[in-house]
Every structure is written in structure tokens, then in C-alpha cells.
Design a protein around this nucleic acid. Structure first.
Length: 571
RNA sequence: GCGCCCGUAGCUCAGUGGAUAGAGCAACCGCCUUCUAAGCGGUCGGCCGGAGGUUCGAGUCCUCCCGGGCGCGCCA
């Protein structure tokens, strides 16, 4: 168990015992002590007195004083003293020894630090991106790439087995529309009104001609274009370092008769009816805003029918839990899908409903103006375009620093031209600095003694304790991030932690003549490195050991980037 | 009209019912003889969209209103 959890448990027990010693009842609900927001309030605070006051009919501060005294009298590990403050909080002050235990915990756990087995035995299928294979991934799609991959890592950090899946809508009208557009370009014509007008089709048409000659029909164009598009999706994803375990083809559902099967299941369960020559799902009765068509008048199935077959297939493939990440432009489909799944008997404890995570859309800005993000309109900015200009790490963290409930504005001017001030460099630099200390120590022949031989009790500087407090909270950050499906919490944690690392670096020289202090600080630096590297790893952002110092004369020129990063054209 | 999301510092955004609401950027002032100044410290900056309500306590929960985004196809 991580030290933080251990402390909470210890304090919890101590508080309960104190209540009993005072003859006070235990309040209902969670009385978990929580870390204080301010240093002067100690390490942890508990609001039990506030909550008990009404029950016992006494002033909250009186109750608090009593509890504080009982707590102090208890023999609780690391406890220094308690104070009553504000309306009736009991502030708990611990000795720094608990933070020294955190350091030991981090360096002995290494990359396992912060991990939990809360989701052990959970096999989760996480579907994200799933952009139609009708062209390159557009810039806004990068958000789901970054968020989905990070969320997968976050869930895995809690012990889950996570499977990344990409659903290819390769059986519907969109691909046909795409084919007609491609063929139009191939013939030197403008795409149809409702077709795809992006310039990428012109290039693609040229390639089509050079590869397959002058006698290409629509079907051939479609299949060739489809292959090209999937290939380019994979390439774009590879550029940003995201790989899917499964690329699931919608066509398979039709070939295997899954869609037909879903329809007959729904029909025999009495959930469908025929009206206006179409087959409808009685979804309104199941919570949807209205009923939905499953089979169109022309006999083809709707997106909903196909999607139900897809989700049913996913749950049959043996996952304990299904998660989809969708853009907010699809939120109208959530109720329909869930209504259909319920009609199919999904939604029990053995087979829970798919969880749909909705993320707000990305607004792309350049030159102070919004850029439209539409594959159909001509004006396309692709993820690949962005990666031509910025480092994948920059793109990822830009998408990840913001919660998915807010519409994100991706300002290309800021992200590209001001990359010197990008949070990515700030965080990566903290990692590089810590690594640099290790190298410098090596150069000077200073080697780290075994952890058990280092005297950590000399770590008393506020900067040092600050680092350890942040590290103590990291496991909780990961757990919360997983629970709330909010990977941005890891991003904001690591940015905050980097700030503490820089402060420590500035104020606490590690390699000094004080051998004991040097040893303790070397271990603290190592713990910090582990924290930074782990969080960055979860976000899918690189943690370079070296970042070259930016030459002052060239601060407008090319940035000095760490290893493994492509050199963005910044000028 | 109905449904979902959002509204917090000049800008971009954190903040799972707790005390004096935070960070980055921008602006201004300091700090390099010492482990990388892509750094550190400080100043400036807020009726948390508005009004009610619940609560010992509300940026957070509830209701209504205002403003913005996205949906409400026999498209996908």
C-alpha cells in the first residue's frame, strides 16, 4: 500500500478511536481526512467536529478541541500535534518522517509507484478515434488520439487490461460518397455537391491514376481509396505514437450476419414495428427522445442498427466493460444506442451498458481566426499538418492539459511559434535537469549509497518536503483520473510537480560537501525523476534525459529538442 | 421548441461540499563565480454569467433566467 493510503488509514482509525474515547458518535459517511490546501493548516485536516456538532448539539469548535486532544494523546505514527482552526476543523500536523517514508516507497517501487490493483481482472475494451476512412485524420481528431491513449494508460495503471480498438465504418454511404468524389477528381471534375472537397483527393486521384491506370471504375476507386485512407490513418497515428490492438471492420458485421441477427432479436423481443415501409426501434419507450429507424425503406440498415451489432459483438468478445470515446457532435446517439442495447438485454450487472465518454470538440485557430474542421469542406487541417509543425509531445500535452468537457481551442500560432513557452518543455526540462544531476554526480565520482544507508531525515527543507507531498498524492491522482475518466488530471499534476522540481533545483543544491545531505538529495532527485517519467509515460509524452541549453542569440531560431523528437520548423 | 456540455484573472484553463478560489501566458520588478536561466522569486490582476434555494459551509449540489457550443435525418 502506498504511504499516502497508509497514512489516511492510520489517521482514520485514530480519529475513530478518539471519537470513542470522547464518547462521541461516529458520523455517517466518509470521514477520510484530506490533505490541507495550506501549509499553515498542517498536513491533513478532518471535518468530523463540524459534522458532529449538530448531531450532539454542541458548538463545533468545542467538539473539535476535544477530538484534537484525544488524537494528540493517541499513539499515532508520525503524529506531531493537532490544532483546531476555522469553524471547527481539526488540523493534523505530522512529523516529516512520513514524507521520508514516501521517498522510500517511490524509489523501492520504481515504475510500480502509484499503480493500484483496483481494476485488476477488469478487461476493458476502449474504442476511440474511429474516424471514417474517407480521408486523413483531421486536427481535432488529435484530441481523441491523445485522450484515448492516455486514458488507456491511466486505466492500465489501476490494473486493468485495456484493449485499444478502432472501428472502421467501411460499409456505409460515406465511403461511397468518398469514392464518387475520388473518381470525380480522377476524371478532372469537381466532386459532387455533398462529396468530399478536400485537396487531398486531388493528390490521391493522381496516385490512383499512376498506380491503376486510366480505366478505373467506382468500385475499384473505392476499395483502393479505402486502403489508402486506412494506411494514412495508421501512419498518422504512428507519428504521434498511438497503436490500436484491433481495427474492426464494419463489413465483417454484415458478412457474418450480425446485423440481421440483431434485427431479428429485437423483432422477436417485440421492440420493433413497421411504419412507412421502414422498420423502427421503439427506443422512446426505453429513454430515447424518439423512436429510431433500423431498416430503411430501401432495405439497407441504419448506422444505429449496425452500431448495435458492433457493440453486441464487442460485449460477446468477452470484455468485462466497454468504453467509447465520442465527440460531442455524436451525443444525440448515446440514448439511441443505450436504448437499443437495453432492448438486446445488455445493461445487467454481468453485461453492463457500454460507457460513452463524450468530449467537446476542438476549435482550431490560426491568425486569430477560426479554421473550419471538416473533411467535406475544402479547408482541412489534418493532424499530420500539425505534426509537421509541432513535436508530437507538444501536440499530445496541448490536448491533454484540458478536461474533455470544455471545448478546446487549439491555437496554431501559439502552439507553433511560441513553443519555447510550451508546458511540454517546462515539464521535460524538469526531467532533464534531474537527470543532469545524476550525470554530474557520476562525473564527480559521487555514487549513491544504498537507500537503506542514506539518512533521509536530513530532508527538511520546505522545497524537499513539497516534492514529497506531491509524490505522496500521485497514486491518488492516478486513481481519481481513472475513476473520473479524466487523464488531464495527470497532466495538471505533472505540470505542478515540475514546478516543484524546478523550485527544489534552484534552492537545494544536491551535490555539496555535506555527504549525508548529498546522498539524501540524490535519492530525492531519483524519486522526482521516477514521478516525472511515470506521469509523462502515462500521457504518452517523452521524458528526455538531455535537453540542450537554448543559446540566447538563437532564441528565435530552431529549438533545442530532446532525443527522439523531430525537429519542428519553428521559424 | 426539446436534449447534452460549457460560462472562473486581460487570454488559455485547473479546482471529485470545506478555511484566504489557483496555474500558465501576457504586463511590470528582481535573481546566473556553483548540479542546464526552456529556470526561480515578487508585483499587478476575480460581484467564480445572473437570481433564488439546500447546507454549519456552495465555484462545486437543486430550480429558473441570460450567453456560447453541439445535437434533435429512412446521413454516418
Amino acid at each position: 500500500m502506498a504511504i499516502y493510503a497508509l497514512i489516511i488509514e492510520t489517521l482514520n482509525t485514530a480519529i475513530l478511536a478518539s471519537l470513542e474515547a470522547c464518547g462521541l458518535p461516529a458520523p455517517t459517511g466518509d470521514l477520510t481526512p484530506e490533505p490541507t490546501a495550506r501549509r499553515e493548516h498542517g498536513d491533513f485536516q478532518t471535518n468530523v467536529a463540524l459534522r458532529l456538532a449538530k448531531i450532539v448539539g454542541r458548538a463545533p469548535r468545542d467538539v473539535a478541541v476535544e477530538i484534537a486532544a484525544a488524537l494528540e494523546a493517541s499513539n499515532t505514527a508520525h503524529l506531531d500535534h493537532c490544532e483546531v482552526a476555522g469553524p471547527g476543523f481539526v488540523n493534523i500536523f505530522l512529523r516529516p518522517t512520513w514524507l521520508h517514508d514516501v521517498l522510500t516507497d517511490v524509489v523501492t517501487s520504481q515504475s510500480a509507484y502509484g499503480r493500484s490493483d483496483a481494476l485488476a481482472n477488469q478487461r476493458i475494451n476502449l474504442e476511440f478515434v474511429s474516424a471514417n476512412p474517407t480521408g486523413p485524420l483531421h486536427a481535432g481528431g488529435g484530441r481523441w488520439v491523445a485522450v484515448g491513449d492516455a486514458l488507456a494508460n491511466v486505466l492500465a495503471s489501476q490494473g486493468a487490461t485495456v484493449h485499444r480498438e478502432y472501428y472502421l465504418n467501411d460499409a456505409g454511404n460515406q465511403l461511397d460518397t468518398f469514392a464518387r468524389s475520388l473518381l470525380a477528381r480522377y476524371s478532372g471534375e469537381e466532386p459532387p455537391e455533398d462529396g468530399y472537397h478536400g485537396e487531398y483527393l486531388i493528390e490521391m486521384a493522381q496516385l490512383l491514376r499512376s498506380e491503376l491506370g486510366d480505366d478505373v471504375d467506382e468500385l475499384t476507386a473505392r476499395e483502393w481509396g479505402y486502403e489508402q485512407n486506412v494506411k494514412s490513418l495508421r501512419e498518422d497515428l504512428a507519428r504521434i505514437g498511438v497503436y490500436f490492438d484491433t481495427w474492426f471492420s464494419e463489413r465483417l458485421l454484415h458478412e457474418r450476419g450480425n446485423v440481421v441477427e440483431v434485427l431479428s432479436t429485437l423483432e422477436s423481443a417485440g421492440h420493433t414495428y413497421v411504419k412507412d415501409d421502414a422498420t423502427w426501434l421503439n427506443s422512446e419507450a426505453l429513454g430515447d427522445q424518439r423512436d429510431r429507424v433500423l431498416v430503411k425503406r430501401d432495405g439497407s440498415t441504419t448506422y444505429l442498427a449496425n452500431d448495435l451489432a458492433y457493440h453486441l459483438d464487442k460485449s460477446r468478445r468477452g470484455w468485462d466493460y466497454l468504453i467509447d470515446i465520442w465527440g460531442a457532435d455524436h451525443h444525440g446517439q448515446v440514448k439511441s444506442l443505450q436504448a437499443g442495447m437495453e432492448a438486446l438485454g445488455i445493461g445487467t450487472s454481468e453485461s453492463p451498458q457500454p460507457e460513452i465518454i463524450l468530449g467537446q470538440l476542438v476549435k482550431l485557430e490560426r491568425g486569430g481566426e477560426l479554421v473550419r474542421l471538416s473533411k467535406r469542406a475544402g479547408n482541412v487541417v489534418t493532424l499530420s499538418d500539425i505534426l509537421d509543425e509541432v513535436d508530437p509531445d507538444v501536440a499530445r500535452l496541448t490536448f491533454l492539459l484540458q478536461g474533455i468537457d470544455t471545448a478546446l481551442t487549439f491555437d496554431l500560432d501559439v502552439v507553433t511559434s511560441q513553443s519555447m513557452e510550451n508546458p511540454v518543455f517546462y515539464v521535460q526540462y524538469a526531467h532533464a535537469r534531474v537527470c543532469s544531476i545524476g550525470r554530474r554526480a557520476d562525473e564527480q565520482g559521487v555514487t549513491r549509497v544504498a537507500l537503506k544507508d542514506a539518512d533521509l531525515s536530513v530532508l527538511l527543507h520546505e522545497r524537499e518536503l513539497d516534492l514529497l507531498r506531491a509524490l505522496s498524492e500521485y497514486p491518488g491522482v492516478l486513481a481519481t483520473s481513472a475513476e473520473l475518466r479524466a487523464p488531464h488530471r495527470v497532466a495538471t499534476w505533472v505540470r505542478d510537480f515540475a514546478s516543484r522540481v524546478h523550485g527544489f533545483y534552484r534552492d537545494c543544491r544536491v551535490i555539496t560537501n555535506d555527504a549525508a545531505l548529498t546522498q539524501a538529495r540524490l535519492w530525492l532527485a531519483e524519486a522526482s525523476r521516477i514521478g516525472l517519467a511515470d506521469a509523462l509515460g502515462i500521457l504518452g509524452v517523452g521524458a528526455p534525459a538531455v535537453m540542450e541549453r537554448l543559446d540566447e542569440d538563437e532564441d528565435e531560431a530552431e529549438g533545442a529538442l530532446g532525443e527522439g523528437q523531430n525537429q519542428g520548423s519553428l521559424g
